[in-house]
Design a protein around this nucleic acid. Structure first.
Lengths: 348, 348
DNA sequence: CTGAAAGCGCTTACAG
DNA sequence: CTGAAAGCGCTTACAG
């Protein structure tokens, strides 16, 4: 290792070539694992590379070859647990494949107009490489739609209503099944029905989560209340919780994510309802803190990092023919029963 | 599906040049806002750019000029609120400056050995551009230390024990002041002393938060208990909380972050202690859910996104002489008093 | 004010 | 198996 020569101009394949007594093309062959290089010269080149501390300039590689080994993730608010976890999964898989990962933040779901989103997509496209768009919200969906044709892109989306075509490389968790499981759980405890506080839908009114919830109610012959619209954070849950608290018939509430559930629980506390004595609450995601709330939160765990890894694998397959095109495996949600759900109160 | 993807060659400055009837060097001048271009030719070039939809190839720009307008953020676990917020702030500022932001995740604080960290730093350096290292944990500190000399880097660090030299472009929040404020608040409520559950220190034993806490105790003539070592997540807080719950003399606990506080509160609940009736608890960070916990959490708000913006501004100044070198403004922590803190119980 | 040359560090044909 | 040429799309001197 050459410790001293760091601030200097970095060593190029020409430097390595002269040190090894070969042409720089041969150096290129060695660092690209080209088969037709005589073992002895390969040795010499590798020795020179090691001695000089040569590292291939990725910018020049990208320009000359057109391949960039880079992926840019387009996402809204990275502080949300689900988003951050997907990003983490992508980074993990990208690192293993020696890919660089860039990040572009879309404005908050509400505030992102077409122009902003289009500009951000363009910027990401300019960076070269592939794109992964987390399309859990309107801004993300808009971004996914604004990607120019021909640019390799993978979408991390809500469960689509119908299976997308092969021209839509998407990955998703089984939101319908998750909501179905959670609703069944609450009904099995004896609740007459289950109310639902939804996260903002990325596109249409009836998300897969809503569908799963409704299906479970229908199968049980339970009344189907109208879903309440929440936001992403606890504030939206709090507002929805206050509304639901006004109705004494409400004994079970399913929430679109754990933060929403937190807000709902807070609102119920404020209005003097016991959990789960008076009202049961269940969330979605199994965020790290959910197990430590009081009461601890019943929720459905979704494998976001696995989803991120799948998204990268899919993109990797598109980018390099050599790479396996993984089937988009739909991760199976797991119900985690904790303290916030229990039997309904005795009826008066 | 279009497997190979981006087959359409993008338009180059030569295409623009022929369309505008000038040489490609003139096009280069126009897109670089070079002063010496005749207004009429500039017009023609701009028109051609617009018509052909030309976008400058950033890879070629980087290779030819050496400037890359890119920053890579090196960080541990992106799902923690503080880290994610700093990243958000960096991205925001970078976007405004038309910089690309890359991300490299360091292995979890405990599991990252020297080699892993060094490899990740190398990878980030290879990407070109500047580096911002979030050094709130041992892995980050190690990464900051492993950055080769000559590479532009800014550290987001815990409050340093003594002011760093000019060769250490660092930003930080005032951890000492924050801990001091929170401790003073608890003491002012009448508590005899305040116990402290610490986040893992990034380097040495006595972090600035510990110092601030101790200082407040000292000034008040309060007993100085030994700090408890926590982890980053609620699990560590829970373990520490169980220990503290065994001591009936404990009436006030300051926690190194809100997640830790969550775990402590949970442990106190499990052991039958009322909050704040029996024990007051305060956190650090003001995470989004902290206001909606039951009881809502007294905490100290730190401006992480502001810190991220400052970090980028500092790096920007290093990278481009034209950019203003912002002084690293130490963000002022704000005490947020909520339900989890109150007077101590009557003494028996 | 504008054009012709050289080159950033690499790869991809093309020779031998 | 290895070398000499051309070029990726741009910028930076250097001419005029």
């Amino acid at each position: 290792m050459n410790v001293t020569g760091h601030t200097r101009r970095s060593v190029s394949i020409r430097d390595v070539a002269t040190a090894a007594g070969v042409s720089y093309q041969t150096v290129s062959r060695v660092i690209n694992d080209h088969p037709s290089v005589k073992p002895s010269t390969r040795e010499r080149v590798l020795a020179a590379i090691d001695e000089l501390g040569f590292r291939r300039n990725s910018t020049a590689l990208a320009l000359a070859s057109g391949r960039s080994r880079a992926v840019t993730v387009l996402t809204s608010n990275t502080t949300h647990y689900g988003y951050a976890s997907v990003l983490q999964g992508i980074e993990e898989a990208a690192r293993a494949a020696a890919y660089t990962v860039g990040i572009g933040v879309l404005e908050s779901a509400d505030g992102a107009d077409e122009a902003d989103v289009a500009a951000q997509v363009q910027r990401s496209a300019d960076a070269g490489g592939g794109l992964i768009v987390i399309a859990y919200d309107p801004a993300g969906v808009r971004a996914l739609g604004a990607v120019p044709a021909g640019l390799p892109v993978v979408g991390v989306v809500e469960t689509p209503a119908s299976p997308p075509g092969d021209d839509r490389p998407w990955v998703w968790a089984d939101d319908r099944e998750a909501a179905y499981k959670a609703t069944r759980h609450l009904l099995s405890l004896g609740h007459e029905t289950v109310h639902y506080v939804a996260i903002p839908s990325s596109t249409r009114r009836t998300s897969a989560r809503t569908t799963g919830w409704q299906q479970a109610l229908k199968e049980a012959g339970a009344p189907q209340p109208r879903p309440l619209q929440g936001s992403w954070g606890p504030a939206g849950g709090h507002a929805a919780g206050l509304k639901l608290a006004g109705n004494p018939a409400v004994t079970a509430i399913l929430c679109g994510n754990d933060d929403l559930a937190l807000g709902v629980i807070r609102a119920l506390h404020e209005t003097g309802r016991a959990i789960p004595g008076d009202v049961s609450v269940a969330g979605f995601d199994d965020a790290p803190h959910s197990a430590y709330l009081t009461p601890s939160l019943t929720t459905v765990r979704l494998d976001f990092t696995g989803l991120g890894r799948s998204a990268f694998a899919l993109l990797h397959g598109v980018l390099e023919e050599s790479a396996q095109i993984a089937p988009h495996p739909v991760s199976v949600p797991e119900l985690i029963v904790r303290e916030s759900s229990g039997p309904p109160p005795e009826r008066g």
